[in-house]
């Protein structure tokens, strides 16, 4: 799938528009995306940091895109997720990479990383399972 096609699909999803991310790179096994910081992403009102749920949602969104069959197929069904929060989600553009660990006939596992400036210093890491049938 091409980047522009994936972005067009994202633009049709109300919650993805709410997150406001853009897909920047796509290949068979990986997707990269960036999400500019918005007031509506704040979780902690004292520190103005990202809401943990927004970071998890951003990672889940791009994880699901990596295992999308084709552009017209229904979205993969999320089964569960685990997220480790490693550093504070300070205000700033958030980057995320989702990589397919394994794609079986029924189940797919996708690993994600989110970071601010340095991919080597991730803000969060996630592991997502999807049902493909």
């Amino acid at each position: 799938m091409k980047l522009l096609d994936i972005q067009a699909r994202c633009d049709r999803v109300p919650f993805f528009r709410h997150l406001g991310f853009s897909v920047t790179e796509v290949n068979d096994m990986q997707i990269l995306a960036i999400m500019p910081f918005e007031q509506r992403h704040i979780g902690n009102p004292m520190l103005d940091t990202y809401h943990g749920g927004i970071i998890a949602s951003f990672m889940e969104a791009i994880a699901s895109l990596t295992v999308l069959g084709d552009l017209n197929s229904p979205p993969p069904k999320p089964v569960n997720l685990t997220v480790d929060y490693l550093r504070p989600g300070l205000p700033g553009t958030l980057n995320a990479r989702a990589s397919i660990l394994r794609r079986g006939r029924r189940i797919a596992s996708v690993e994600t990383t989110a970071w601010l400036d340095d991919e080597g210093k991730p803000v969060a890491k996630g592991l997502f399972h999807f049902l493909l049938v």
């Binding site: 919650f15 979780g43 809401h51 943990g52 749920g53 998890a56 969104a61 997720l81």
Partner: peptide
């Protein structure tokens, strides 16, 4: 249909 992510965010909050 709600996105699962919002339920995750709701739980976290």
């Amino acid at each position: 249909i709600l996105h699962g992510g919002i339920l995750t965010a709701l739980l976290d909050s």
